[in-house]
């Protein structure tokens, strides 16, 4: 849960985030978190999941992937390294 490396999917719309959370929760262990402010200052939501689930989750999202952004987060202490996929 508190691993130092994980992926997040960020959403522009709260409703889109909620719908995707419901969909992904059926098969995956994910968490909805606030989008880190390094990525977006808007009040966005993101879905956090472990690295090893990346391919499965992208698969599950299918075409929806065009409307979201995926980032890899690496934490070092209180600092974060964020890479956009």
């Amino acid at each position: 849960m508190f691993s130092q490396e994980f992926y997040i999917i960020s959403f522009e719309s709260t409703h889109h985030a909620i719908q995707t959370e419901i969909k992904l929760k059926k098969n995956f262990s994910i968490e909805t978190i606030p989008t880190p402010r390094e990525i977006s200052a808007s009040c966005g939501l993101s879905i956090k999941f472990p690295c090893e689930k990346l391919i499965d989750i992208l698969d599950e999202l299918g075409k929806e992937i065009e409307n979201v952004d995926v980032f890899k987060i690496q934490k070092k202490g209180k600092n974060k390294i964020i890479t956009k996929l």
């Binding site: 909620i18 968490e31 909805t32």
Partner: peptide, 16 residues
């Protein structure tokens, strides 16, 4: 529904 999400987000952010 939103209130629950925001509370989750608040407590998650506290840990960070």
């Amino acid at each position: 529904e939103l209130g629950k999400i925001l509370m989750k987000g608040y407590i998650y952010t506290l840990t960070e």
